[in-house]
Each structure stands twice: as structure tokens, then as C-alpha cells.
Design a protein around this nucleic acid. Structure first.
Lengths: 369, 369
DNA sequence: TCAAGACGCTAATGCGAATTAGCAACGCCG
DNA sequence: CGGCGTTGCTAATTCGCATTAGCGTCTTGA
């Protein structure tokens, strides 16, 4: 059948419906639906020849069920929403989030799911928001959330409205527990800190934000636990150099990287007699190593540097850092898996994936003792 | 209201509907819909205080219309489908398609549209297909198609079913004209070929597939037209070296790159006395230059090389090629624009965007005369 | 012979919004 | 005072599919 679209000359073949198929096959719409969904429960029986007849018409016409109507009726889509606070593609090459997306796409494809990118969220011009004027989050069966920090109110609302989602990256409760797949930052950081201590280091510094995002808090926790247990320093390390937490000659300090040049960081480290610095962001680690070497300092001979993860900003990493690798692609994959499980059975999955420690060449025994 | 999902313990806050809002505001569902869509035609009138009352309830509850139902009712989504024959993210960094996607996302965001990636298409394992078992193409208002070649049957079916779409890259008719935004390969290639001829070159070779994909056919056309008009060679250049098209001492030949090493290509070029080779794929151009220099040949002194576009395969391009740049990001943007126009007014937009010629340093005057 | 399944299918309903047709109340005019 | 137009709203229907309840017809077993 050809009908013309209002206001235009071009004609469009009207879309086939189950009703049409039913007519052609001489059965009811219900039957078509049943055949289509391959329902062969005890509840529902279709004679083989009827089924065949219907299937033939479907094959001949190339009919496919309208996904929208389908979703409206049975509340399922096989569409997973992906929300990011920034554009997905532009920065992607050297980008921190890219590996997550690779994993997500891979697993989604295996699961037969399509991905809906909420690009429209930022139409207003500012930062993207999950709940915009007419948000399409509900179109998807569930959502994946990416971002260093997620808006707490958004999370709370997601939770309150019962929208299924999984965060990539651990999140604190937002009124209720948040489903997530994270990286075991605390464990990895603790292990590296202990390794430094085992190599004779007694004065250690954590360089980074140190508070705010969960990913940061976790690392700081690993750091302080290790220093406290092995060196007897305070369990609370305040984010500022005036009050480093010391115990005897041992010291565990926390240096804010934001707003400081690598030079200034180096000065502060030197002033405190620090022999190993653990940088939250590999980009900072790179800057510090370059600044140190420019200053004639031997890394790791005179100053060891540990990189606690991948660079958040695009930088060229030409250094073989001691540190850890977060399983980003795997986290993406796992997030999709957890989301589909959550869609099946509900629940609030929370998982931390182990980070792989990297030996590297920027952590050496302490030689200043 | 809390209801429990069948078979699970976890409770879900049922989603608000217009019916709920209507009840709360003491009006009908129709009124809520009208207010929501800000309908103030002469046809429909809502008293300001009623409108305000409804809006207040909407604000207080944070209600948002269900996009699925919306689409079912008025057949519009603000969702654009993106189909690619391969995974979107994995290769993306060094990838040929990445710039298109950047442009698409940019423009989609400006237009307030979300992007639906048809990742599920390839669940079967093989090459992705547009029309899979239960394809979700129809969920989107329209689709963008990416790929060096697109399946002709898929295109024909898209056309036949009246699914709105725009191809990124020119396409031959598939039963009917195909809407597209392409790059003006023919013009760019013709211009570069003429420039080579103007520099005294008389024996030229086109290196690449030469047939098949439209993008290739267009380039070959530019090449043959230029050589035929300026040198008097045949207008048909057959894709094999046994029958180069000559006219006097002038020659325009076509060398298949596939299945040949750069060494073999060089041999063939030398045997034919070619002084300038135009490579369809920048990746081939790179290989040829390296092979030539390894052989002690001066590029461009003894052999000029022109790159007709960007590399299709990921390679490190460390050479300042003479050639052209296809406006990939712009093409992505334009594709979105054309698609939205097509959705508004119908039609079959076909557009070629100009390529920017790059002077570079791999094309020099012919010194063998 | 009759009640009780098994069998094969369909009518009716719901999902949540948009839209169409139209109804009641009111004011105005002749 | 009756007819008419305006104003402000709603009942009913539609979109295409999934699902529930149930209906006739045929066996079977007792």
C-alpha cells in the first residue's frame, strides 16, 4: 500500500503490522505475535502448519516487529543507554573513557543489545545532565553511567524512580546503595605503598586531589592504611602539607596537585624529605618525573614515583611507570553484564575489579638512609 | 506507589503517567498532554490557571513523558540511528571513521537528538547487517549509514520500506537514488592529476582498488578525465598493468594495490616508466614512499607520490604528502543536517563536499625528460 | 454416555501518550 | 428570549504489539 506523507510529494510504503501479516496468513494478530516470539509453552500451542504459514508470510514480506510498540507492550527493548558527561567521540583517541566504551560495545554486541548515547543531554550548552527537559533515559531498558564524578541528585533520582542502571566506577550511597563496577583502587594503592615501604621508604607522599571523587578517596584510603599500619603514622592524612602525618622520622603526607605546577610539587616534596611520591593521576606523574629530571634529580635513584592508574588528561606517557593498570575494558564489559543481570533479577550489584600491578622502573629502594 | 516486580524481592517505584498527573491536578490526561506540549493553537485553549496548576504538579513530581509511548503515538523520537559495519569504538583512535562520528555527535547534540548505535546488528558474529532478526532501525526517526561499501540489498530495502536515512559517502542508485553526503573525490583527484601534468609528468599511475566502492570509482574518474583531456590517453583505464592506456609517450595506468607488496608496486611503476603515482589510500602511499626510499629512490625527486585522501587502515603517517583532505567531520555534521531536513520535508538530498588540496612535499616537477 | 482434559486458536485488553471530535457553560446580539 | 459563537475542557480513539482469558472441537477414560 502506498500512502502519501502529508505536505510532501514523496510516497512512503506504509509499514507492515502484525495485523497485515495476520490477514495474509489468515490468522489472528495474536497468532502472529505468538509465532514471532516462538512461544511454545504448554499454555500456548500453534499447529506446525499454521506456524509455518505465518513464518512464510513473515519471510516473504520481510516483516519485523516494531520495536517501539514492542517496548510499550512488554517493557523491554534490548537497548542500553550510555550516559557520559562529555562527548563520547571527540577526545576519544587518547581518552580515559575510551577503553570503557570498547568493553561496553563489545559486550553489548554479544548480548544483542543496541547502545543509546544520550548526546542530546547537553543541548543546553552546559554540562550534560541525566534528567533534561524531556529525557530519553527511560527509552532504554537500563543505563550505564560514566564519569569521574556523578551528580548525587541525579543518582538519587535514578534510584528513586527505579530506573535500572550501573555506574562504571564505585559510587557512595546516594540515599540508597548505588549499583556499580569499580576498580579496586584501595587494594592496588595499598599494595604499592607497602612495596615502597618494604623498599626502605619512610617518608611518602600522596599527590592528587585526595578527596571528592570516590576513585580518589579509595586510593587515599589504601595509602593511609598502609602507612599507618607499617609506619605508625596517622590514619587520617589531611590534604595539605602544613600538617603531614608523622610518626618518628616516618611521614605520610598528602599534597594537592591541583593549582600547583610540577615545580612547586617538587619543592614541597623536597622540603618534607619525601623519597617516594604516589601520583593519583599518571598525567601528574609524567609532569613530576620530567620536572625532576630537568632539575637533575635521578628518578628513581633519588626520588621514586608511582603512578596510581592511567592518565585522566591526554598526555604522552613515555615513561615505564611503576604503578597499576585499571582493567577498564573489562570494567565496561562487566558493567553491561551486571546491568543485564540487574534487569533480569533486580538487586544492587556492587563489584570491584582487581587492578594489575606494574613493576615498571620508577620505584627503587630508598638510598637516603 | 510501590509494587513488586514478579519473581523478585526488590520493589520499584512505579513510573508516573500523565494519568497520575491528571488526577493530582484535577484535570484529564488530555489536558496534561496539551500543557506538556505547550499547545496554544486556536484549536486548543487552556486557562492560564489550569496550565499553571498542571505545570506545578509536573514540576513537583519531576514527571517526564515516556519517550516510547510518545513515539508510538506521534512517530517521532529525536533519536537518530547510526549504523556501521564495524564496531564504533575499538579502532576509533586511529580510525578512518572517527572524524565522521565526531561531526555526527556534535551536530546531533546541537539538534537535541540522541544517537542509537546499532551494535547488536552483529550479534551473529559475522559482519553486521542492517536488517537482522529483529532490527531496531525503526526505533529511530532516521538513520546514518557509514561504511566504505554498503550492501546494495540493504540499501534497496531501506528505500523500499521508506526508512529515512542518509549515507555518509556517495552511493550509486539502489533501485532508486540514495540520499548521501559525499566527498568530491573526482574533483580533488582531477585537480591533483592536472597539477602533476602541469609539472611535466607524462607517465602517471593510479594505485588502488580502482573499482568497486563509489569512493574509488569517483577518484578513478577524476584521474582518467584529467589524463585523457590533457594527455590524450584513453578515457577508460583498465585495472591491470598489461594494458596501460597510452598516447604517444604519455601513459595513464592503473595498478591494483591489493595483494601486492609495496616492492611489487614499485617494480611495476619502474617498468612502466611512471614518474608520479597517485595512491587511493594514504596507507599505501606511506608504504610506497618508505619502500622507494629504502631502495635509494628520491621522493619526490625521482618519483612523486600523491595521497588521495586519508589512510583507511591505521598507519603512522610521518610524511608531508601532497594530496587532499576530505572534510570528514564536516561530512558527519552535514549528514545529520540533511537527515533532519529529510525527516521534515522528505526528498532525496545528495551532496558532495569539497576536499581541501594539500600542497605537501611529495609532488615535484618531472626531471626525467 | 458423559465429564474431563487436550488442542488450536482468537477476542479483548493494556501499555502511555497524542489527537480528534465534541460537549457544557457562558456571553452576546438581534 | 432564542440562536450563535467563544471558551475551556474531556471522552474516546489510535499507535503496534504482548498477554490473558476463554471458546469451540476432539479425544479419552470411567
Amino acid at each position: 500500500m502506498r500512502i502519501s506523507t502529508e505536505g510532501t510529494l514523496h510516497t512512503v510504503t506504509r509499514r507492515l503490522t502484525q495485523q497485515d501479516i495476520a490477514r495474509m496468513a489468515g490468522v489472528s494478530q495474536t497468532t502472529v505475535s505468538l509465532v514471532l516470539n516462538n512461544r511454545s509453552d504448554a499454555e500456548v500451542r500453534i499447529a506446525p502448519e499454521t506456524r509455518e504459514r505465518v513464518l512464510r508470510v513473515i519471510r516473504e514480506t520481510g516483516y519485523a516487529a516494531d520495536p517501539v510498540a514492542r517496548r510499550l507492550a512488554d517493557r523491554r527493548n534490548r537497548i542500553l543507554g550510555v550516559f557520559t558527561y562529555e562527548a563520547v567521540f571527540p577526545t576519544v583517541s587518547a581518552d580515559f573513557y575510551h577503553p570503557f566504551l570498547i568493553g561496553i560495545e563489545e559486550r553489548a554486541q554479544e548480548a544483542g543489545c543496541d547502545l543509546l548515547l544520550f548526546t542530546s543531554a547537553g543541548a543546553a550548552g552546559g554540562r550534560r545532565r541525566i534528567f533534561s527537559e524531556d529525557s530519553r533515559v527511560r527509552l532504554a531498558d537500563g543505563c550505564l553511567l560514566l564519569g569521574r564524578t556523578l551528580d548525587r541528585d541525579d543518582l538519587a533520582r535514578l534510584l528513586a524512580e527505579g530506573i535500572p542502571f550501573v555506574s562504571v566506577g564505585r559510587r557512595d550511597d546516594a540515599g540508597a546503595p548505588v549499583p556499580y563496577v569499580g576498580a579496586a583502587y584501595a587494594d592496588a594503592t595499598r599494595a604499592l605503598t607497602e612495596r615502597a615501604i618494604a623498599l626502605g621508604h619512610r617518608r611518602l607522599a600522596y599527590v592528587g586531589a585526595g578527596e571528592g571523587a570516590e576513585s580518589t578517596v579509595d586510593r587515599i584510603r589504601g595509602f593511609t592504611e598502609a602507612t599507618a599500619h607499617r609506619l605508625g603514622t596517622d590514619l587520617v592524612v589531611r590534604p595539605d602539607e602544613p600538617s603531614p602525618a608523622t610518626a618518628g622520622d616516618a611521614l605520610a603526607m598528602h599534597l594537592r596537585a591541583a593549582g600547583r605546577t610540577a615545580e612547586q610539587v617538587l619543592d614541597a616534596l623536597a622540603a618534607a624529605g619525601v623519597t617516594v611520591a604516589l601520583a593519583e593521576d599518571a598525567a601528574d606523574a609524567v609532569a613530576i618525573v620530567h620536572a625532576a629530571r630537568a632539575r637533575g634529580l635521578d628518578v628513581p635513584g633519588e626520588l621514586s614515583i608511582v603512578a596510581l592508574g592511567a592518565p585522566t588528561r591526554p598526555v604522552h606517557v613515555d615513561i615505564d611507570f611503576t604503578g597499576f593498570r585499571m582493567p577498564r575494558q573489562e570494567m565496561g564489559r562487566r558493567a553491561v553484564e551486571l546491568l543485564t543481570e540487574l534487569l533480569e533479577n533486580g538487586g544492587t550489584p556492587q563489584e570491584l575489579l582487581d587492578c594489575e600491578l606494574i613493576d615498571g622502573s620508577t620505584l627503587a629502594p630508598n638510598n637516603r638512609r
